[in-house]
Design a protein around this nucleic acid. Structure first.
Lengths: 147, 147
DNA sequence: CTAATTAAAGACAAATTTATCCTTAATTAT
DNA sequence: ATAATTAAGGATAAATTTGTCTTTAATTAG
């Protein structure tokens, strides 16, 4: 569904939301290890998420690293998709028709629409914080490895 | 969601299901024009759909072209995804976790699961014929251009 | 102030997807 | 048989995505 870049972005964001804070920043090494993603590529992605501090914030130097401000944790996960320029995926026609719409629907439009709406609702109502909390509670996982 | 190749495959399949038959084959030129896709790339995709006559059938020479046998029209659209090797998209974890499952769910698993199930149901219950019929009825469209 | 640490930025490389083109093979009509 | 038509197949190219590496800039600790 999403690109690898966006998958990594979602994992990194939720991981940071759970583990980091303004006082406890986390380095790229630890992040890439935790979410099992290629280190340099993940760095690029975090850089993108850091643009204008839109999703992630960062600080250089010793004790530096990445973190997610409390204010951002309260935002819907959808902001990650926006920052990665992949929020359109949730909107577009399954068959790739440019003109697909209510008045000119593709053959799958009517049924896909309701599914699409649930997807959009999911990403716009669940906050980053809410997802991170579940990891804290131990009911879900973000690591991609056995350990 | 799907690759361009699969989007073209879905459009071409439904177009052929509506317009073609064993007696009335359709050439690549007409197909690419109808679904507004790059001609040579579409040829490659049809070639793939033709492997083992799994979805599309073809005949060379004058009056040759592509068509979909009646038997295939009764199959679910899912067969197109399978032929394009993209049926996994419906199954995989939204966050890209290899180990995501009921017993080791990602933070979005529980909610995404129900959406995923609807997607799978849609593609496994709707037949190629059913979607083509709607075009015939004029309630939906497959062409990607104004005309 | 200096050295160490860490992210930012940009150039580069590999892999995959998308797309084109040319030759070959099969079929049909004459 | 021959010529015309059409898909099959393979080589190639362009674009995008994924990934790496090296240098620079900022910050902090000593």
């Amino acid at each position: 569904m999403f690109s690898k870049a966006t998958e990594y972005a979602l994992r990194a964001t939720i991981f940071l939301a759970q583990k980091s804070s303004e006082e406890k920043k986390i380095g790229i090494e630890e992040i890439a290890l935790a979410i099992d993603s290629p280190r340099p590529f993940t760095a690029k992605i975090l850089q993108q998420l850091t643009r204008d501090n839109k999703v992630v914030s960062s600080a250089r130097g010793p004790q530096g690293g990445f973190f997610i401000p409390v204010k951002v944790k309260k935002l819907p996960v959808h902001v990650v998709l926006e920052a990665m320029n992949e929020d359109e995926i949730l909107e577009k026609c399954v068959m790739g028709l440019k003109l697909c719409s209510e008045t000119r629907p593709c053959p799958l439009h009517a049924q896909y629409k309701t599914i699409k709406n649930q997807l959009i609702t999911l990403f716009t109502t669940k906050t980053i914080q809410q997802l991170a909390d579940e990891i804290q509670d131990g009911v879900v996982f973000i690591r991609n490895k056995k350990s």
